[in-house]
């Protein structure tokens, strides 16, 4: 499933989570700085879930991107051989 020529699935997962994390966190920070009117806010707005959940996505996605970066994976595989 992950031959030496194939980019690992984990890399794709890391990339998409990283991109989503940046979008979600940036949106959350914007909404923190410029809060929407009271009636347009979601419940528990004061917890700013978008900011810290975006941070979790960035952390998780970033780790996967670095760990499974195609050239890093190839190096590890040739080292094992």
């Amino acid at each position: 499933m992950e031959s030496e020529h194939q980019i690992p699935i984990w890399f794709f997962i890391g990339c998409i989570l990283l991109i989503y994390g940046i979008i979600v966190m940036a949106t959350g920070v914007y909404l923190w700085v410029a809060p929407p009117p009271e009636e347009a806010r979601v419940k528990l707005y004061e917890y700013h879930a978008d900011v810290w959940w975006g941070a979790v996505l960035i952390l998780f996605g970033g780790l996967y991107c670095v760990r499974f970066w195609p050239s890093n994976v190839s190096k590890r595989q040739s080292f094992r051989r």
Binding site: V24, G28, L31, R41, V42, A49, D50
Partner: peptide, 12 residues
């Protein structure tokens, strides 16, 4: 989802 998730999180 509509109750708790704002822009961005809702898209997710």
């Amino acid at each position: 989802m509509g109750q708790y998730l704002g822009p961005g999180l809702l898209g997710l």
